[in-house]
Design a binder for these strands. Structure first.
Lengths: 254, 254
DNA sequence: AGAATTATTATGTCAGACATATTTTCTGCG
DNA sequence: CGCAGAAAATATGTCTGACATAATAATTCT
């Protein structure tokens, strides 16, 4: 359900919003910058002013911009950007998938997920646990297929958050989703890496079933360690590869 | 700056969005419900279809609704709502300031803020600490004035998050802001309560200056304890008061 | 009965106009 | 010359009405 819905908003307004977001995220339009007037933006993106305004309305909702009559529309301070928003996270992933971004996202996951896991072990219902176990089985069944592994992996982590019954922890699922998507993108250089996390997930699941909060917390913590390690090494590999590609291109250009 | 900007969007479209959000949050329009068509919504709220669409666009951005051509606009599953969004948090506060909501928000604060505080103690710069100290002084200077106390209190907590340098933790400031606003609203029944947190803030500040992460974590943890306690007792007091008022009204009606 | 076709309908997009709130410019006075 | 107050300019905010598009519902034909 969630998967299907996230595919919505493929209308042109969504594309325009994403493009404006990209310009802001990449720093073309810095904090405090007043952006071109609506009519100009509309013509630049090839849409009507009404559609343009709908796109801007979307970005306003995410805290990226604010506008006042006559004064114009400006980029808000970074502090006001709602980085925990799923779309904004994905846009950032597309625009600036930097190592810094990866470290930050893993830092919050490390803070939130082990605790959520402990709460889950105490407060979750058997149905909650069954859902998590189904996700685990899905991961197992995926074998070495990276694509098939990704979805149940997300469901596993989301399942834990849902089991806490805390709406804010559940909303944190968007951040986890972005992190997993990042991992997935990076795993192309090392297709076997995702599967290695399976036994760690198994331990988490066992501790949850045992309703052992401390064990669950610790197990999730270890899973976070492994995940971060994978991401960091994959990123440096990617970086190296990019540098080589760049080199090759430069040589060819001569 | 942030304060001024948050006062934006007082245009009618903002009001409409808030009202629709209220109807969804209070369960008048439940998850999965297809809401009336745009033209009907527009006339119901007394705005044009264009304005109505801008409002809906805002709610789409926050994950509350999704729409497909011909099929209509429907309320998305709760899991997809971005509860960590500042506006959505405020709307919830206005629509359903329940004890459950208070507990949940304090549960995440308890998870995030002590860790953020520990990171702050290690990674923060002296300028960061100075900013936090300025906020502390502001709280002290406010004395028993609840209104004057609120703003520097928020700046104190935000300052710690900012000092972590982690964009996601910084974005969590929206949640803290909502929690403090809730505390503030509740403190009317016990005007002296906020000030009691001052020495706890002092301890946090000292541990940060000492660059002692464990002490900082523990100090923040104690502050969270106190805050939660205040909120819970204030809410039960409020609940009692509301019940009495209700009683009085019923008696009068006879 | 079932498949293919047509009609319907709600969102998506467009165009042009006017309203409103600020900012900027202009004007007159001390 | 400086400055307060009035007038003009302008970018966002709102409205109206129309057409495009895609998904659903109804209809027709085999």
């Amino acid at each position: 359900m969630t998967k299907a819905e996230s595919k919505d908003n493929q209308q042109s307004s969504g594309h325009v919003a994403r493009e404006v977001a990209r310009l802001i995220l990449t720093g073309v339009w810095r904090e405090g910058t007043t952006l071109p007037r609506e009519i100009e933006l509309a013509s630049r993106f090839g849409v009507s002013r009404a559609s343009m305004r709908e796109s801007l309305s979307l970005l306003k909702a995410k805290g990226l911009i604010a506008s006042r009559q006559k004064a114009g529309t400006h980029v808000r301070a970074r502090f006001d950007w709602n980085m925990l928003d799923e779309e904004l996270l994905n846009w950032t992933l597309l625009a600036l998938p930097t190592q810094e971004f990866a470290k930050q996202i893993m830092e919050v996951r490390r803070i939130v997920e082990p605790e959520a896991c402990a709460i889950c072990a105490v407060r979750g219902t058997d149905e909650d646990f069954a859902r998590i176990e189904r996700a685990y089985r899905g991961m197992d069944a995926a074998g070495m297929d990276r694509v098939a592994y990704a979805e149940p992996d997300l469901q596993f982590h989301r399942g834990i958050l849902i089991a806490t019954g805390n709406d804010f922890l559940i909303a944190f699922g968007a951040t986890v989703a972005a992190a997993l998507r990042m991992s997935f993108n990076l795993s192309s250089t090392n297709p076997g890496a995702p599967r290695k996390s399976l036994p760690y997930h198994r331990t988490v699941l066992d501790e949850i079933w045992a309703r052992n909060p401390d064990g669950a917390r610790q197990a999730m913590h270890k899973l976070m360690d492994l995940t971060e390690q994978n991401i960091v090494s994959a990123m440096s590999r990617q970086k190296k590869k990019d540098a080589e590609d760049e080199n090759a291109r430069t040589r060819r250009a001569r």
